[in-house]
Every structure is written in C-alpha cells, then in structure tokens.
Nucleic acid binder design. Structure first.
Lengths: 146, 146
DNA sequence: CTAAACCCTAAACTATGGTTTAGTGCAACA
DNA sequence: TGTTGCACTAAACCATAGTTTAGGGTTTAG
C-alpha cells in the first residue's frame, strides 16, 4: 500500500508553513487533496507533483488566483490542454520579462558597487555631491546633504 | 538657468503614478526633493538620478524601508561609502538568488509547455490522470478529477 | 477674472499573501 | 486514562505597497 502524508509532512517537504498550505487550500489551490473521516487533510504522492507545480508558479510570481485557474484546468483533464499551454506560454513571457528587469538592474547595481569599491570612490562621490549642491544652489533649492 | 520639474513631469518620465511619488516621499525615500513657497515639490535634474536609483532597487525587490536606509546613507556623503557598498553587495546576492529561482522554474515551465505542445500530449496527460486515479483509489481517497 | 489644470495633506481604503488566535477534536504513547 | 502533539475551522490580524478621497490652495490660459 502506498503511503499517505499529513499536512506537517507536506509542509516540511516543501519548506512551507502549515498555515500557508491551509491558506492555499482555502484559496482553491488544492482541490486534489482529500480529507479523512476526522476532517484531516490526507496527501498522496501524486499530490506532491501538483504542489510542486504550485510552488513553481508561485515562485515565478504568478498570482494565487491564476494558479487556481491553472489547477482547475488540470482537474478538467485532457480537454483543457490547449488552455493550459497558452496560460503557461503567457506566464513564460512574464518570467522572461522579469529576468530582463533583474539583469538590467543588476548591471546598474554593479556599476555602483564598482564605483564605491574603487580607489577613487571618495573623489567620485565628492564630485557628485558638489554637482548636486551647485545645481540646487543655482535653482535656489535647499541643500539636501547633512 | 537649469530647469526644474513638477511632480507630474517626474511621474511621466518614470512612468509612475503621482500618488506613488507622494507615497515614496512620505516614506522618506525623497529627502533630496525641495518644496517651493506654495508647498509644491520642486525636482531638479539631479533628483532624477536619485529616483532612477530608487526605481532600480525597487524593481529588484528591495523593500521600501531598505531603500530609505540606502538613500539616507547617500545623503550622509562620503563617510557612508563603505556601508552603501556592503548594502548593495548584499542586495546583489539577493538579486542573483532571484535570478536562479526564475531560471530554474522557467525550465520546469518549459518542460510542461513542451509536454502540452507535443503530439503525444493527450496520451501523456491521460496516463498521468490514470496514475493519480489509481493511486487515490488504492488509498481509498476520492477521485479529484471532474 | 475665471475655469481648467495642477498641487497639497491627511486619512481612509484596497489588494495580496499570508499568520495568528481561539476554541475544539483526534491520535498515540505511557 | 490522561497528557502531549497534531489536526481542524473561522475569524481576526498583519505587513507591504500602494490608491483613492475629501477638502482645499495655486497657476495658467483665455
């Protein structure tokens, strides 16, 4: 006989708080989970696969409501394959967009780190401060430094 | 004489709602912005540089409170260079971590898209559903499909 | 001079994604 | 059989990041 799992075992496996799993269930993300006579959630091996997918979508920024929609499509079986594919294709584009944003901004951050780490950092920063101070003075605006 | 800018001009430039700029100001992210006699915010060219930095940090997931800390360090001038550098180095690690998470999960998503897009998709999905159904039945758990 | 377009603040409100609490029931071990 | 640990729900609560509203001043174009 295959094993079943308690909410705590699932929580530990996925490194999620139990409360989060209950929250996901309440939000309709876990329609595949059964309950026993006592009302306890009973997880099977295959539930882990669904939850892994949920984590994957969550960790790439898909909103709970969309994850729910996706899982609902999964429970509808083969007729929803096309819809599922297009949802994931759309989501993939979002993830790629996020990657681009991170990559571009990381360049900016590196520029600053290098500036701060350079031997000339003090001079560079002083010059920038002077520039700002001069500009603000010319415009009769208050000096923001200090 | 250099130009000054209204909150609307800044909002349009950065593609941010005016309300967000006011919110950032209230949260202490814009200590470098002056106000005129009427109480209107007056932005100078150099303010755009600070705001660009704020957007860069925000877009890479730095919390508002940390951005505030970073900006405050900037206003302290050269003595805070080391602290600023270590803040950004720490943040850089966070961004790299985010990138890894996105990259790994994107692979998962691609696997699913390819599965859904394959000629065999219907058979693959049917087999998965059968597997789940069988497992649930063996465990006397309810069938989650339909 | 006035209307339209802007600007301001304070405070209330919203959305998202949870976490915590209170009250209660079930299970397992000694 | 009692205590300890885990489970449950409902509802309250929280943090974050804004947005909206109400009430009121300012600026500018005609």
């Amino acid at each position: 006989m295959e094993k079943t799992y308690s909410i705590k075992e699932v929580a530990d496996y996925f490194n999620l708080p139990i409360s989060t799993i209950r929250y996901y269930d309440k939000k309709g993300l876990l329609p595949f989970v059964s309950k026993n006579e006592a009302g306890y959630r009973v997880f099977s091996e295959s539930d882990f696969g669904f939850i892994k997918t949920i984590c994957c979508l969550k960790d790439t920024g898909m909103p709970i409501s969309d994850i729910r929609t996706y899982i609902e499509l999964c429970m509808q079986g083969t007729p929803s394959i096309t819809k599922r594919r297009s949802m994931l294709q759309q989501h993939k584009q979002n993830v790629i967009k996020q990657q681009e944003i991170l990559t571009n901004n990381l360049k900016e951050i590196d520029v600053k780190i290098n500036r701060y780490a350079s031997k000339e950092s003090k001079n560079i920063i002083s010059a920038q401060i002077k520039f700002v101070k001069d500009e603000k003075r010319d415009l009769h605006l208050k000096d923001p430094f200090l």
